[in-house]
Nucleic acid binder design. Sequence first.
DNA 1: CGGGATCCGTTACGATACTG
DNA 2: CAGTATCGTAACGGATCCCG
Lengths: 216, 216
Amino acid sequence: MTAKRRYRLLCPIARALDVIGDRWALLIVRDLHAGPARFQDLETGLGIATNLLSTRLTELTEAGLIEKSTDPGRAVYQLTELGRRTDSVLWELSRFGSQLDPDPDPREPGNLRTIALPLRLMLQAVPNRPNLVVRLLVDDDSFTITSSTDDVDVEYGDTSTEPDLTARTDYERFLDAGEGRISPDEFATQYLDIIDGADHTDTFLALIGAAITHPG
Amino acid sequence: MTAKRRYRLLCPIARALDVIGDRWALLIVRDLHAGPARFQDLETGLGIATNLLSTRLTELTEAGLIEKSTDPGRAVYQLTELGRRTDSVLWELSRFGSQLDPDPDPREPGNLRTIALPLRLMLQAVPNRPNLVVRLLVDDDSFTITSSTDDVDVEYGDTSTEPDLTARTDYERFLDAGEGRISPDEFATQYLDIIDGADHTDTFLALIGAAITHPG
DNA sequence: CGGGATCCGTTACGATACTG
DNA sequence: CAGTATCGTAACGGATCCCG
C-alpha cells in the first residue's frame, strides 16, 4: 500500500522512466522479447531475487507492458503490444552500452534469453532478407530464427517448426561478433559450425554477415 | 568506499544501465543536452535532492559522460562526446513515454531545460531545414534554436547570436503539440505569438509544422 | 517442483540543515 | 552558489519458508 517512487514530471522521458526505470524492469522486459517465459526462466536468466522479480512482474503488469497467461496451469509471462514497443529503447541502450568498457568481473547469466532481442534487431536491419528458419545453438541454449522479407523473429528455445539449417557457436564469440570485436568473416569461418542443412549455408552466412556489418 | 550496485552482466544493455540506469542519471544527462549547466540549474530543474545530485554528477563524471569546467571560478557541468551519444536513448524513451498516461498529479519543473533535447531531435528529423536562428520563449524560459541544413541545435537560455525571429508560447501547449494532442496548425495559429522578426514567420512555421508532423 | 510470499540486514534515496 | 552531513524512509538482495 506504499506509494511507488515516481518522478511525477510532465515530460515523457520521466514518464517512461516511472514505468521502466526501476532496477531490473528493463532487463525483464528484454528477456521477454525472446518469447513467453516462466517465473524461473527469468530468475535464473537474470540472477534476480525472487521477491524483486515478483514485485516487478506485478508492476509491469499494472503498467500494461506484460501479461500473465495461466492457460495450462503453469504461469507464463509475455509482452503486450505496449511492452513490445520497448524494442527501440532497448536497441539504443544496447548500442550505447557497446561503447562502454565491459565489466572487469562479469557474471554469467543462467540462460541466454538476453541475446534474442539484440539478434532480432540486427537481423531486422538487413534488407532483402531470405526466407529461412534457423536453429541457432549458443552454448547450451537454443534459438529459432524465423526470417522472411517482411519480418524476422527470434524465439528462445526450440519451436515446433522444423529448421532449414542448424548451426552452433558459443556465447563469448557471439558477443564479440555482435559488438564488432571480430569480423563477420572470422566469426563465420572460425566459430560457427553448420550442423545440419548445409545446402542453406551460403544464404545463412550472407544473412549473418549483413546483420553484423549493418550500421544498425 | 562502498562498491556501487551493478548488474555485472556481459550484455551491453546491462552495461549501459550500470552507467545511466541509476535514478535521476538519465534526467540529469537529458538536461545537460540543453547546454552547460550549473549545479543549481540542475537542482531546480529536476527537483532532486542536493546530495543525490552531487553523487550522480561524480558518478557520471567517472563514467566519462560529463565533465566539470571550473574556468571562471563557478562550476559548470557539460556533456562529453560520450555523453552526447545518449541522445538516441533519450529520444526513444521519449517516444515510448508519450504513449503512456500522464501522471495524474504532476509536479512542475523549476526550469524547462527538459524540453530542449526533444525539441532538437524533432527538428533534426526535418529534411531541408532553413538557415534560421530563433529565440523561443516558453513561459519564463528562453531557448535559442540554431537551424541549418546540416545541423540543428537547441540551447537553453539566450546566446550571443542575435535571433532572426522571436516567438513565445507556454509549456502546456508546447507539450500538447509535441505529443500530438493538438495539430501543428492549431498550435501555430492559436498558441504561438511572433514577437519579433515577423518576416521570417513563414519559414519558422514551416519548420515547426514539419517537426511536429514528422514521424520521428 | 514451480511459483511465489515473508523476513531481515544492507544499501540507496529524499528532505533538510549546515558549511566553505 | 556549490556542495557536505545527518537522518529517517523506502528499495534492494539473499535466504528461508510456504502452498498448490
